[in-house]
Amino acid sequence: MAVITIDKVSRWFGNVVAVNDVTMTIGPGITGLLGPNGAGKSTLIHMMSGFLAPSAGAVTLDGARIWRNQEVYREIGLVPEKESMYDYLTGWEFVLANAELHGLADPGAAAERALALVEMGYAQDRHTGTYSKGMKQRVKMASALVHDPSVLLLDEPFNGMDPRQRLHLMELLRRFGADGRTVLFSSHILEEVEQLARHIEVVVAGRHAASGDFREIRRLMTDRPHRYLVRSSDDRQLASALIADGSTAGIEFDASEKALRIQAVDFQGFTTLLPRVARAAGIRLYTVSPADESLESVFSYLVSS
């Protein structure tokens, strides 16, 4: 059992607090670290992988401090976000070098196994500088897996991947999670995380915003009040017809935009109500646009709840 414990951890850079009093435990299985860009995901992963010291608190692997403790790398495999990886080596040479650096008994066999696992054997004799983004990501995976680690940390592994490569990597990570390894990956895309991770940790602006089963978090996200901007052939009549229904919490007539700003309580209810009401009243809808669907607003709602 490999468990990473983050205990009351803060990290600041000068006056900027990147991670603020976060406590979480990452155990076996797949965990998704979700948050908007700049939320502190990378900072957390850098601390979990021993490349950043916490300013306060402790980050440990099975009780052993990670910072300045190179022995933890026998257990940890890291897939960094950056792409640079000794461009002058071939994929084979790169993974083999990683196996040798781990001091494995049979580095050749380990490199072969790791490359086969990510299905990169066919391109192993090409220089890594010629690889596509997805291929680089897979070879980076192979280098992280070459010593058969019990913990795998991946920083934004799906960035820049095409859908096919994405599915392949997801499949691979699922297999590792099912093997009982501790897999943690970061992402700023909810759909990506919920496809893969049962357990999700959400960070927003350096703070730990939510933790738990993805269904729970998904419910929190869809149940929040939604705001819409609506333009129609008769805004005032539409407003009066809508406010009678329980799924609408408030309506404001925005004179400068010449539109209605509607706050819906129930996402499902409102989206079926609006066209029904409009048709019954003989009103034409010109614009229906969600006003706050940005990820940041979803996250800030999570923080406030």
Partner: peptide
């Protein structure tokens, strides 16, 4: 500079 030192450092090798 380019960050590839990570692959040397994420190993149980004395610095």
């Amino acid at each position: 500079e380019d960050g590839s030192i990570v692959y040397l450092l994420a190993k149980p090798l004395p610095r």
